[in-house]
Design a protein around this nucleic acid. Structure first.
Lengths: 136, 136
DNA sequence: ATTAACTCTATAAAGTTTATAGAGTTAATA
DNA sequence: TATTAACTCTATAAACTTTATAGAGTTAAT
């Protein structure tokens, strides 16, 4: 399962995609539209900013706006920011590789072999889905 | 990411698959071979028993054995026992359906639509992987 | 100067995962 | 039939993660 945080982030990005190149949006409005706790959303939008998906204007009538075109943002990269690896086991992750604690021989591990296939499939399909997709 | 519990279960099932139709195995031996905390493994094997994957003999020289043929046990069903839904959002799960708390209109939800595709792909690939696969 | 927005860090509350403990039951066998 | 070595079951501890809230600060328009 995906975390709520990640789902909220996706919803926020959909909002901002709908408003792409039409100025900024207030956190309060995104929160209301997406049914997301406002203070929690603030953190999430900040994360999205630090990850380079959105920009912000501060001060009176400030707000958030999408930097990249909706079509150029895919689900895989958003997922990784909030929920980390797409892989089901750390040893097959490219971006978040870690040796499994219980592993004694990674080379001959058939779990690694099979879960590597799963990861590759998941990665491909999540990469195909972009934020223009969500608007259609 | 998959839980350790689920990974331990898979490792235990691989052990038992290797020993299929050759009598039972002791928890202690599976624990040693798989590098799994023994007491934790006891719980897991019990879960596998209740789920119908393994059987047990009690008492002196008792132990666990695989009931179904390795080829007839697929990854999707094992995953569901320990980590629940394969789906990334509850609203697209067949076996663990739940309405998303933040959802206002499930019919027109494009997140639901896209994540339904992801789930279907994941389900298919995890269903294809069985425990004979792991032995090869 | 005021207002209304974003920024940042801390922390509380709840939930989940991982693991351990221990008392019980069962059945082989000496 | 006493002993032993295995599984059975429930409780709970410890660690970690997720979800959410709080509040003080900064910024910029008016």
């Amino acid at each position: 399962m995906m975390s709520k945080k990640c789902k909220y982030a996706i919803k926020a990005l959909i909002c901002l995609s709908e408003n792409y190149q039409q100025g900024n949006m207030f956190t309060a409005d995104i929160a209301k539209k997406g049914n997301i706790p406002k203070k929690f959303l603030e953190q999430i939008l900040l994360d999205l900013k630090h990850a380079g998906f959105v920009g912000s204007h501060q001060g009176y009538r400030g707000g958030y706006y999408l930097i990249r075109a909706p079509k150029e943002i895919n689900l895989a990269e958003v997922y990784r920011v909030f929920d980390g690896a797409i892989a089901l086991v750390p040893c097959v992750s490219v971006n978040y590789y870690e040796k499994c604690e219980d592993c004694t021989d990674e080379i001959s591990c058939t779990i690694k072999r099979e879960f590597s296939k799963i990861k590759e499939q998941s990665r491909l399909i999540m990469k195909e889905i972009n934020f223009k997709t969500f608007l259609e």
